[in-house]
Design a protein around this nucleic acid. Structure first.
Lengths: 228, 228
DNA sequence: TCTCCGCTATGACCGCTGTCATAGTAGCGC
DNA sequence: GCGCTACTATGACAGCGGTCATAGCGGAGA
C-alpha cells in the first residue's frame, strides 16, 4: 500500500487539518489545500487547474489522476476541506477562552479574520462563499458541497452554544446568524479594505448572543453538561 | 441631440431605477442592467461580454462604443447601479410599512429576497458580493465600486434608522450589521436552496434592532410615531 | 528479469474570452 | 451633395481554459 495518500475524499479519517502553512502532506492533499487558497482569493472562475498544481508544487499530470472528474471535483473537495476546517476550529476557539461565552466564541471566530487581514492584507475571503457565488447556479454538486460546508460549520457552532447553556432551539438559529454576519462582514471588509464591518459585527452582536444563555453569571447548579 | 441616451455614467441624474423587468431604456442602460443580472447569477468571471450584449438585446458593436475601457468598466457600472438601486429602495420599504421600525425595515429588505427566491428560485445573489469575491483582489477599480455601493446602501439604511430615532452613533454600525447579515444569509440561502437563513436573520436580529430606538413604547412626548 | 501499477510528463485540441481593427449605416447641419 | 458624428456590424487575433491521449518512470511482487 504505497497509496497512503491519494484517498481523502471519504467520510472518515477526515482532516489532519494541515495547518495553514507548511505541514507537507501528499500532493493530493496539497492540491486541495491550494485550490481552497486560490479560490478564496480570486474566485473559482479565475482559478486555473494548472495554477493549482503549480501553487501546490504538484505535478500537473497528477490532476487527472487524483481528480478524474475534473475541476468540479477539485473545487468540491476544496469546499469540503474548508467546511471541515471551519468546523474543527470551533473547539479550539473555545479552548482559547478563559471561560466560554457565545460572544467570546464569536469574537474568536472573527478575530481569526481580522488578524489575517491586518497582517496579510485583504487578499482572501471565504472559499465557500466564493464557490457559492460562482457555482451555485451551474454546478449543483458544488452547491451541495457548499451547503454541506455551511451545515458542518453551523453544527459545530450550534453545538458549542448548547454546551454553553443556550437553549436547544435557539442554538442553530443563533449559529446561523453568527455565520451569516461573519460572511457578510467579510465581503464588506474586503470591499472596504477595513476590518470595520467585522469588529462592528462583534460589538453589536455580542450582547445579543450572551443574552441567549439563561443565567448570565455562573452558579454551578445542576451540572450543566447539556448532553445532546 | 439624438444622444439622449448613451450617457449615464455621470454623477447626477442617476437612476431611473429601471424596474426589475421591462422598462425599455437605451441600449447602454440595458447593458449595464443585464450585466448586473448575469453577474449576480454566475459571477463576474463566468459572465461574457457577448453574453451581456445578447441578454440586453443590444448590438455587440455597442460594447466598445459605450464601454471603451472594456469589461472592467461595464462591471463597475453594474456594481454602481446595484448600489444605487439598493439605496433607493430603502425609502420605498419605509413607505410600505404601516409605521417605520428598524425591524420592519430589515424585514422588508429581507422579504425582497425571500419573495424572489420563492417565486423565481435560488438562481441569483447580490451582484456586489459577486464582484467583490471575483475582483476585489485583481481589479482595484471594481473593489472601489463595490465599496461605494456598500457605502451608499449603508448610508441609506443608517439614515432611515436615525429618522426612526436611533441614536446617531448606533445607526451606522447597526446598518452595517443588517447588511452584513443579509449578505451572509444570501450566501447560505443559495447554498441551501432555502430561505431559512434569511428568515432566521430577521427573527433573531429584529428585537436587537428595535431595542436601539430609545423608548420602545409610545409616550406621546415629542411627537414620536413609534407606538406599537 | 519481467510485469504490473501507481504516478508523472507532455503535447495537442477545441472552445471561449476580451479586445482590436476596420468598415458600414443613419441622421443632421450646411 | 458633403462632411461630420453617433452608432452598428463583423471578422480576426492572440491567449488561456479544461480536458484528453499517449507515453515514460520507478518500485514492488512473482
Amino acid at each position: 500500500m504505497t497509496a497512503v495518500i491519494g484517498w481523502i475524499g471519504g467520510t472518515l479519517d477526515e482532516m489532519r487539518e494541515a495547518g495553514m502553512a507548511g505541514a507537507e502532506r501528499g500532493p493530493r492533499e496539497r492540491m486541495v489545500f491550494s485550490a481552497a487558497q486560490l479560490i478564496r482569493r480570486a474566485g473559482v472562475g479565475a482559478t486555473g487547474m494548472r495554477e493549482v498544481a503549480a501553487h501546490a508544487r504538484a505535478p500537473r499530470g497528477s490532476l487527472q489522476h487524483y481528480f478524474p472528474d475534473g475541476k468540479e471535483q477539485l473545487v468540491n473537495e476544496a469546499v469540503g476541506w474548508a467546511g471541515r476546517y471551519a468546523g474543527n476550529r470551533v473547539p479550539r476557539f473555545l479552548a482559547a477562552l478563559p471561560e466560554p461565552t457565545p460572544s467570546g466564541l464569536f469574537s474568536e471566530m472573527v478575530r481569526q479574520w481580522t488578524d489575517e487581514y491586518e497582517t496579510e492584507g485583504f487578499e482572501g475571503g471565504c472559499p465557500v462563499a466564493a464557490a457559492t457565488v460562482d457555482c451555485a447556479r451551474t454546478a449543483d454538486s458544488t452547491r451541495q458541497a457548499a451547503e454541506a460546508a455551511f451545515t458542518r460549520w453551523t453544527g459545530a457552532v450550534a453545538g458549542a452554544l448548547t454546551d454553553m447553556g443556550v437553549p436547544e432551539e435557539r442554538s442553530r438559529p443563533l449559529a446561523t446568524l453568527m455565520i451569516s454576519s461573519l460572511e457578510g462582514a467579510l465581503l464588506i471588509a474586503r470591499a472596504e479594505r477595513s476590518v470595520r464591518a467585522l469588529t462592528t459585527a462583534v460589538r453589536e452582536l455580542g450582547p445579543l448572543l450572551d443574552a441567549a444563555v439563561p443565567r448570565p453569571a455562573a452558579d454551578g447548579g445542576t451540572g450543566e453538561a447539556v448532553g445532546s
